[in-house]
Design a protein around this nucleic acid. Structure first.
Lengths: 225, 225
DNA sequence: GGGTGTACTGAACGCATGTTCAACAGACTA
DNA sequence: TAGTCTGTTGAACATGCGTTCAGTACACCC
């Protein structure tokens, strides 16, 4: 159930290298890089731990290969998918079909959260695509103009990733044994409501803050930690 | 610079137990539980690793003590603070004064993300307070009514935590060497804009989805993974 | 057949790290 | 002074895990 492409090719047909890579992707995605150990990956791939090292050199290099592979898979999907939805709209895609690319998206979220070597590239892909979509939407009038489209793009990516990796403890706020995907589904509608009408009934907060920013004009980047 | 209460009491005045606890809270908050090792905690507290075990029994028990302590500190703040802002409005509080309770809030976010023993209690506190605030706001007309206030509460907590723990890779979308707090500041305004006016210029998406939900009425909780 | 190279394995090594243990110093008590 | 209890330490132990190594099986080539 943990194969990267459960539909097309069976595990048995894959080379040992591919089986190891797929097992690693699955375990890195679900358990994280640090927590996953080579022997578990080897066991799931049906090989010995030594073979993992033999083929990939080290655990760290294995992670890099996995990063590249997942990145390529997701980018390939984006390119092949003629619709406008790119890597950014992962949540809507996920809600539409949770099984497809489930693992890859989860892997990416983990990679960004754990700051893996390719994390910056994952993040940049998402943010850039998101920004393009937002700018296009603003131009064609389907989205409201933003004071900072770049930051808006980062915000949407951030919330999307958060929803994809919703912590168990938070999901349990819906009930003792609710699943992550189920929690996501329940959150989807309020998200859409906020994205459509906002949360506040009036703009007192917003105007107050914007006035504050205009009058005070603090030097941006005052990091006094 | 890592003391829990940098303002009131100096580290030198604390008992060894307190110094260990504070060092543990700081390191758990910044590096995570798994990544932190007892010798590093002991070093920061200026004691030996054995003493940590002597006072707390095990690393896991130390974590539980830290959980309790931070939870109590944050709840005490909520109670003492006569304003309406509870644990939920952590982001606004943080933006107003990043140094106060910085560590505790960071600790909580980590605890929830890593599913620490007290994670559910942290999350429940946040969600319940958030829900109360939202319901109050809806009642007094300052906030728009929601189809699912509970889910809305979870959503706001989720996004708040995500902003507090924004991954480096995402923050770097603003520039190669931008800090987490700086990224948060830049995201704050778009967040407020969305919370005030939404993102979409019209409600086609929302009506489409609500229509879909009304007609299809899928059995909620169909977890086919 | 003999040589060479590749896929693969089990055992072992080395290091990090949580934990245990024996010991010591100082305070308090009898 | 002797005894005991607490705070504290350094060394050692045990385990987990990434990695190394010697060796086996098998294929391909001369």
């Amino acid at each position: 159930m943990r194969s990267v492409h459960p539909d097309d090719r069976a595990d048995a047909d894959l080379t040992a290298q591919a089986k190891i890579r797929n097992a690693a992707i699955a375990q890195f995605a679900t358990d994280g890089f640090q927590k996953t150990n080579l022997r578990a990956i080897a066991a799931e791939a049906g090989v010995s731990a030594s073979l993992v090292i033999h083929h990939f050199g080290s655990k760290e290099k294995l992670r890099m290969i996995c990063d590249e592979y997942v990145l390529e898979v997701l980018l390939a999907r984006t390119r092949s998918d003629s619709s406008v939805t790119g890597m950014r709209d992962v949540v809507s895609e996920y809600l539409a079909d949770p099984t497809e690319y489930h693992l890859e998206v989860q892997y990416m979220a983990r990679a960004i959260a754990e700051d893996s070597p390719a994390a910056a590239r994952f993040a940049d892909s998402m943010v850039n695509e998101s920004e393009a979509i937002l700018r296009a939407g603003i131009l064609d009038g389907s989205m409201r103009p933003s004071s900072d489209p770049r930051a808006l793009a980062v915000l949407t990516v951030l919330t999307s990733l958060a929803m994809l990796t919703i912590p168990r403890a938070l999901a349990r706020a819906f009930g003792p044994d609710i699943s992550g995907p189920a929690a996501m589904k329940r959150i989807a509608l309020p998200t859409l409501e906020i994205y459509t009408h906002g949360l506040y009934a009036n703009d007192t907060f917003l105007t107050a803050v914007t006035d504050l920013l205009v009058t005070a004009q603090p030097d941006q980047g005052s990091n006094d930690d």
